[in-house]
Amino acid sequence: MPRFSVGQTFVALFLAANLWASAALPVAQAADYSKEHPLKVALVVHGFLGDKSFMDSAAAGLEKAKAELPVDVKIIEAGNDPSRWQPALADATDAGYDVVIAGTFDMTGFIVDLAPQNPETKFIIFDDAPDFSKCSCSNVLAIEYQTSSAAYLAGYAAAELSKTGTLGTISGMEFPTVTNFKVGFDEGAKAARPDIKILSQVAGTFDDPAKGKEIARAQLDQGADVIFPIAGATGIGALQAVRDAHKLAVGVDSDQATIFAATDQAQADVIFTSVEKRIGRSLYIALKDTIEGKAKYGTRLLLGLPEGAVGISRNAYYEKLVPAGLRAEIDAVEQKISKGEIVPETLLK
């Protein structure tokens, strides 16, 4: 598949967003927003920023919107105590924001409760979706990501790069939006090397780097020489273990090698690619379409490789660590997935 620049990929995603918008009526017509009268947006993070992946990607998308659109953004870090999440979301709603955004299944139930009580507020839930047939959610836009297709590419590459024939995966928890990464990664690895061995463990948390490091060290001791943590901040510890062992890793959610490069070059050097869930980019598009009256509130969007909403990082580390022949092979596999000639397994339909 041809490689695209960041700008070209963004344009493709923007065009795709307009196609998504044509399939359903928006909740409201375009409003006259300006820098003087901006769309007021709150992102409620159930945790903290600084995970260098999932939450940071969402925040980056809102900062981009703030810089380029008539949008006023407030990011609220609700912390790791689950008892604070619903009050934080309710407080943001009561504060009069036009759009309130939250992510993952942990927050979906709260949004389902708040949406019918606040019909003038628009809600965006990313990386999960309510059952629209069972809730009064006409003012809710849900965005999900078909990550298994991108993870398939990373798994294929990981298997080919492995010298020991053993890979490791570490999941934060087991639910579809996390496990879908592993499903695609495992399938891609086995497509490349049917005899590949894949060690798997669930950490049970997204907020424990020490546990992530412990699990990764155990997998390394069992012969894994490529590890894929799908575990938020827990995964940072796993990446550190891979760094210390001078093995290879696959990043998750964001282009983690590029993120680490500014502060930990040794860490960046072992991340040969990342499976990107382009949350920030999709949120930027959702806000732009909201301003223009095109956003499909009351529906669920499932976005994947064809829309540019997921992908793998093709950066300087990818160029250095992945041989040219394998890069060409990965491009060909990606093209087949986009054309429907290869259909990776998925937990999201």
Rank of each mutant, 00 (worst) to 15 (best):
Q219R: 02
D221L: 12
T234P: 08
A233W: 07
D269E: 09
D208T: 03
R217D: 10
T234V: 03
F260L: 13
D208L: 00
F260D: 01
G223P: 08
F272K: 06
A261F: 13
G232I: 00
F228C: 05
K213Q: 10
V242G: 09
R217H: 12
F260E: 03
S254H: 09
T273S: 09
D269L: 01
A268Q: 15
L220D: 03
A261Q: 15
A262M: 05
E214G: 00
A238L: 03
A249I: 06
A262Y: 06
A231F: 12
I236V: 13
I271N: 05
A249H: 10
A218T: 14
P209D: 03
A257C: 07
F228D: 00
D221F: 13
S254G: 06
P229R: 10
I227C: 05
G251T: 07
Q267M: 15
A249Q: 10
T273W: 11
A262S: 14
A231T: 06
D244T: 07
Q265K: 15
F272P: 04
D221E: 15
Q240F: 10
T258S: 15
G237S: 04
A224C: 05
A268V: 00
P209M: 04
A210P: 02
F228W: 11
A261N: 11
D221A: 14
D244M: 07
D221R: 15
F228T: 01
G212N: 07
D269Q: 07
Q267H: 06
L248K: 15
Q256T: 13
D269Y: 03
A238Y: 06
S274K: 11
Q240W: 03
R217M: 00
L248Y: 15
A249S: 11
A261M: 09
G223M: 02
V242I: 12
D264N: 13
R217T: 06
I271W: 07
K213F: 02
L239Y: 09
H246C: 00
G237C: 01
D208K: 11
A216H: 06
A218C: 00
I236A: 13
A224W: 08
H246Q: 14
A268K: 14
S274T: 08
A218V: 07
D253L: 02
A262Q: 12
A249Y: 12
Q240T: 13
A266L: 06
L239I: 14
D208S: 12
Q240R: 15
E214K: 14
D221H: 11
